[in-house]
């Protein structure tokens, strides 16, 4: 004969808590997804930027720009830590200006010439020394992209901080909701708790009769939240504004990336049910022990 549950599951149902926690977990998944996408995008941008530099040679009066460009190329190519030096032709320079000046011919305008420089990331060049060396070339300046990189990093840090803050707020809200639900369950079963105390039950025994339900609630709501989160990323990947859309591509990247990245992404997303379960279990247990301690 299997003994019946001392605290009946029907008294103070946890359905509302399950729904609320599932929504919390869903929001946590979106925040984690955003965190992963921002992190991946910044890594991709900054690795591209830090591998490359640009030498710009402006048209200077009394100087032959072609000669100066060639001089700048030679100075740069001779520098240690430089892998590749590639002079962009005039058409390439004009193409870069197209968004601002349109497709009309720029002949006659003093359009600067650009040299694309690829650096060795293992053995990077001394950019200060390179900049000084290039100062011998008339009109030449070195753009290391550091300004853009630091701007991107700052923006990414801000976005990451917002995502972490959202996760923190979700966790605090979840804890508050679980405390409220635990008190409701305790109040609804007060007559049982009183009787259990009177027949000699310890607080830990009574807490065990209740917190198992919170464990199941945390696990269930966590998996519902993650399921909805993954479904959302799938929908964004499929219908998020066409294949060229940043959101759609990023969502697809999150779901169908290389195994090493996918393990990390899915690992973080599936940490949500674990966190939800721990929040439910630990919060319920602490609340129960504290409340039972004042019920004699």
């Amino acid at each position: 004969m299997r003994p019946g549950a001392i605290i009946p599951a029907t008294a103070a149902s946890l359905t509302s808590l399950t729904v609320t926690m599932a929504v919390m977990c869903y929001l946590a998944c979106l925040a984690i997804g955003a965190l992963i996408l921002v992190d991946r995008a910044v890594t991709s941008w900054t690795s591209g930027l830090s591998r490359e530099m640009t030498v710009q040679v402006r048209v200077v009066r009394d100087a032959d720009i072609a000669q100066e460009v060639e001089k700048a190329r030679a100075v740069t190519a001779a520098f240690p830590g430089i892998i590749e030096v590639d002079i962009l032709d005039e058409k390439a320079g004009e193409k870069l200006l197209e968004p601002w000046l349109g497709t009309r011919s720029l002949a006659g305008l003093p359009v600067p010439r650009l040299i694309r420089v690829v650096t060795d990331t293992e053995n990077p060049p001394d950019v200060t020394a390179l900049g000084q060396a290039l100062s011998q070339v008339k009109g030449a300046t070195l753009d290391t992209h550091q300004k853009w990189e630091s701007e991107l990093t700052r923006m990414a840090r801000a976005l990451s901080a917002v995502s972490y803050a959202i996760l923190l707020l979700i966790s605090v809200s979840a804890i508050a909701i679980v405390i409220f639900a635990t008190r409701a369950v305790l109040q609804a079963n007060r007559h049982i708790v009183d009787l259990l105390h009177l027949v000699g039950a310890r607080d830990s025994y009574i807490a065990r009769q209740i917190d198992g339900r919170f464990l199941r609630t945390g696990l269930l709501s966590g998996f519902i939240g993650v399921g909805l989160g993954l479904f959302t990323f799938l929908l964004l990947g499929l219908f998020g504004g066409g294949s060229e859309s940043g959101v759609a591509a990023a969502s697809r990247g999150l779901l169908f990336s290389t195994p090493s990245i996918a393990i990390w992404s899915y690992g973080l997303l599936f940490a949500v049910p674990i966190a939800a379960t721990l929040i439910c279990l630990i919060t319920a247990r602490v609340t129960l022990i504290r409340r039972l301690g004042v019920i004699t």
Partner: peptide
């Protein structure tokens, strides 16, 4: 306890 059988009610002190 109304949700427990007579047997479970009687056995409660031993169970706890």
């Amino acid at each position: 306890l109304d949700h427990l059988s007579t047997y479970d009610n009687v056995a409660l002190p031993l169970r706890v």
